[in-house]
Amino acid sequence: MRKIRIGLIGLIICLIFMTSPAFAEDMIQIKGSDTLINLVQRLAEVYMEEYPGSYIAVTGGGSGTGVAALINKKCDIANASRLMKAKEVAQAIDNGVQVNRVVVAVDGLSVITNGNNPIKQLTTDEIGKIFRGEVTNWKDVGGEDMAITLYGRQSNSGTYGFFMETVLKGDYSQKMNQMNGNAQIVEAIKQDRSGIGYVGVGYVKQSTGLTVLKVAARAGGIYASPLDSDDVKTGVYPISRPLHQYVNGTPKGAVKDFLAFEVSAEGQKIVEEEGFFPIPKEYKELNSKIGL
């Protein structure tokens, strides 16, 4: 009987404890995409300088990590360089999280090679074959007789998923080196003449020792560069993508203020300074649907 009483007390404590409201939290927690981390950290720094008393913590871990944190209500904003997956949308609904996305920048996902590699352009079909492991030597795409070394991201990366869905349309070669971040890919390819990789354009605008390949959507099509803002904004560059932030519900208070700053003219200027592209009017209209 004593044990049953202990059990009942434990159960009651559990119920009271768990139904009490969470502690108030003024700090904005942002988590997720490695592609977005430098940009959002800079936006947060400028915002905190302009609005003393505000506090924003930005951490990485990959888009999957950020989205998982939002679903589990452990962050206010999830940075994501890809759309949420159907499974994640379902988990969010199960957890009572109403996801809304904000587009804060546009990225020309850049395919890079070593600066000493004579290849300057490829089609998306050729890039897909290379990363699927179907083309393994540069001579098969008009280059030197040299084995290709692949550098990509780990599976928790949104860039990994976006590139797979948009360019590969299949599985990555098992021989691809899975790197921890964009910066690691850039450094590896600088040192590897045979390497090819993909990174956010913000990581290559100022880099030397690399070739940022021009890419055409199909053979005979226009080869466009992710470094050309017009090509990216108009969608001529075939692997441009919006960079997202997901929030729970309609943004309010401090979160709304910070998001509004990000998509403002001042915020978009920082986006350009960090190597990405400002959002075109279509994305501004999309953002306005949730009050931004």
Partner: peptide
């Protein structure tokens, strides 16, 4: 049961 205390801490029972 679980309850987030802040963004870094969660208690559970």
């Amino acid at each position: 049961g679980s309850l987030p205390i802040d963004s870094n801490t969660e208690v559970f029972l």
